[in-house]
Amino acid sequence: MSKATGEMVANGLIQGTKAESKQRKKGFFFEMRRHGALYSMFIPGAIFLLIFAYLPMVGLVIPFKYITYSNSFWSTLFDSEWVGFYNFEFFWDSPDLYRIMRNTIGYNVINIVLGLVIAVSVAIALNEIRNRKSAKTYQTIMFMPYFLSWVIVGYLAYAFLSPNGFINMGILKPFGIEEISFYTDPKYWPFILIFFAHWKGTGYGVIIYLAAIAGQDQSLYEAAAIDGASRGQQIRKIMIPLLKPMMIILTILAVGGIFSSDFGLFYNVPLNQGVLKETTDVINTYVYNALMSSGDISLSAAVGLFQSVLGFFMVVGVNWIAGKIDPESKLF
């Protein structure tokens, strides 16, 4: 084989024969010499992670301790009493456990699926419409809700849903329909909360998919058009499959958070009404309410750890599944 090809094999750019790949397996130093420059690109990020993420991980003992204050943070951590899983028990033994798990996971699964469908559809729609100025305007406006804090969204929701709000006064009353007391009836809230989650978040996802579409090789479409494919066929057979890696990675990442929720949404929009808890209480709001009685950080730390561990297992599972669909898109 030629020198150039040999180099390319060594660089992993093309597959060589078995004999050639044996040479690559020479180990650590060989790898460093070959790709030192590339590995050096990891350094800034790695330093950041070591300082801001790994160093604080000493705090992973907090869920297992009853924190009492000593002279320094380190002695506080080490001298505090070890209580094993005690801090988890208020959560595990809770009479509401089933409800909050069901709500948390339920909302997340629906939102992940719905989010994917809506974001991709809207991104494609924006990409396709002929007037670029309109597309730009629509996109900008759709991004606006993202800037409002959930507290404000809570006020806005109230303006629509209250007994004197727009829905009751402006829609139901003129049609002679009986007024709905949204803030005392749990059954409407899954729809309300899902609506707001996407109202606020869609703009975000759309941008990612638009960028992905923009990065696609246009010659593929032109070739397909020459072969007689309609635009619809082009979208279905080229655009969407090309978006698969992005869809997969975003889903995997979302699944890692399947046991957590956007606290702001679930706490503020239902205005913390107790009677709605059947459908609005999630793990994060539950823990927040428990903290009201003690201000004990070990509690939230314990539940947070629980959420992370479960999320981790979910990701490993979904990652494995993703590997079966498209090995290139695996997270790790």
């Binding site: 009479p95 509401d96 107790g274 009677v275 903290l291 009685s293």
Partner: peptide
């Protein structure tokens, strides 16, 4: 001294927050 029963108290606070409106006379 809440310490001996802090687990139960936390669970109680979370579980009964649902009924807060009753203390305000609304339920």
């Amino acid at each position: 001294d809440e310490e001996p029963v802090r687990k139960e108290l936390n669970a109680l606070t979370a579980a009964t927050s649902e009924f807060a409106a009753m203390y305000w006379g609304l339920l």
